[in-house]
C-alpha cells in the first residue's frame, strides 16, 4: 500500500509541477477586465492590455478595477 502511494507520488508530482509552470506571455494585447488585470506598466484599454505611455496619447481609459 505504502509502495503504491510512493509510485503515485512519483508520477503525479512531476505532472503537478509541470502544470504549475505556465509559460510567460508578454501582456500587450491580452484580454483584460476587472478579474484579469494588466501587470504593472500596462493599462486595460478596451479590454486589452496596452503600455501605459501609449494610453496617454490614445485618449480616455476604461474604468480601472
Amino acid at each position: 500500500m505504502r509502495r503504491r502511494r510512493h509510485v503515485l507520488l512519483g508520477l503525479v508530482l512531476p505532472l503537478g509541477l509541470a502544470a504549475a509552470c505556465e509559460l510567460p506571455t508578454p501582456p500587450f494585447g491580452r484580454v483584460c477586465d476587472a478579474e484579469n488585470p494588466c501587470p504593472d506598466g500596462y493599462l486595460c484599454d478596451e479590454q486589452a492590455c496596452i503600455p501605459r505611455e501609449l494610453v496617454a496619447d490614445a485618449g480616455p481609459l476604461d474604468a480601472g478595477p
Binding site: 509559460l23 506571455t25 508578454p26 500587450f28 496596452i50
Partner: peptide
C-alpha cells in the same frame, strides 16, 4: 510571444494594427 513583442514594438506608430496583431 515573439509576435506579440514585435507588435508592441510598433504600437507607437500604428496602435490599432499592432493591437490587432497582438
Amino acid at each position: 510571444a515573439a509576435a506579440i513583442e514585435e507588435a508592441e514594438g510598433r504600437a507607437d506608430q500604428d496602435l490599432d494594427g499592432a493591437l490587432e496583431d497582438a
